[in-house]
């Protein structure tokens, strides 16, 4: 019984994670500039990956796999912001930011 319930929960998590990843892909395609695209590329993906991992964990249920899944989640959370910041900074410093799309830019004063 508990196994069936976990399977259904796993299915729900996998579906939700897949939908978020799909939305992220659409966002990357449709957003107007690189900075906006970064939001789509790094963010719904965070929750999306976590949901997918949770779904996989609920389905597999073996201790060794759970440890690996936990590691994947932790490293995902730790590294995604670093990559996002490096790309964001490179974009800004190389002047590939469209000022028409920014309401305020506090960084120009520097």
């Amino acid at each position: 019984m508990a196994g069936t319930l976990a399977d259904w929960l796993a299915a729900a998590c996998l579906l939700a994670g897949a939908l978020l990843s799909l939305a992220a892909g659409i966002g990357v395609l449709r957003f107007p500039d690189t900075l906006a695209r970064m939001h789509a590329a790094t963010k719904p993906q965070v929750l999306g990956v976590l949901l997918l991992l949770l779904g996989v964990a609920l389905r597999l249920r073996t201790p060794s796999d759970l440890g690996m899944i936990a590691l994947v989640g932790v490293f995902q959370l730790a590294t995604a912001p670093v990559a996002a910041q490096m790309i964001g900074r490179a974009v800004y410093r190389s002047g590939r930011v469209d000022p028409d799309l920014l309401d305020v830019d506090d960084l120009t004063e520097r």
């Binding site: 900075l35 970064m38 939001h39 790094t42 963010k43 719904p44 965070v46 929750l47 959370l77 995604a80 912001p81 996002a84 910041q85 964001g88 900074r89 800004y92 960084l107």
Partner: peptide, 12 residues
């Protein structure tokens, strides 16, 4: 902040 969608760190 970086992990939450809608906010992206550009410079520290």
């Amino acid at each position: 902040i970086s992990l939450v969608p809608g906010t992206l760190i550009i410079e520290v």
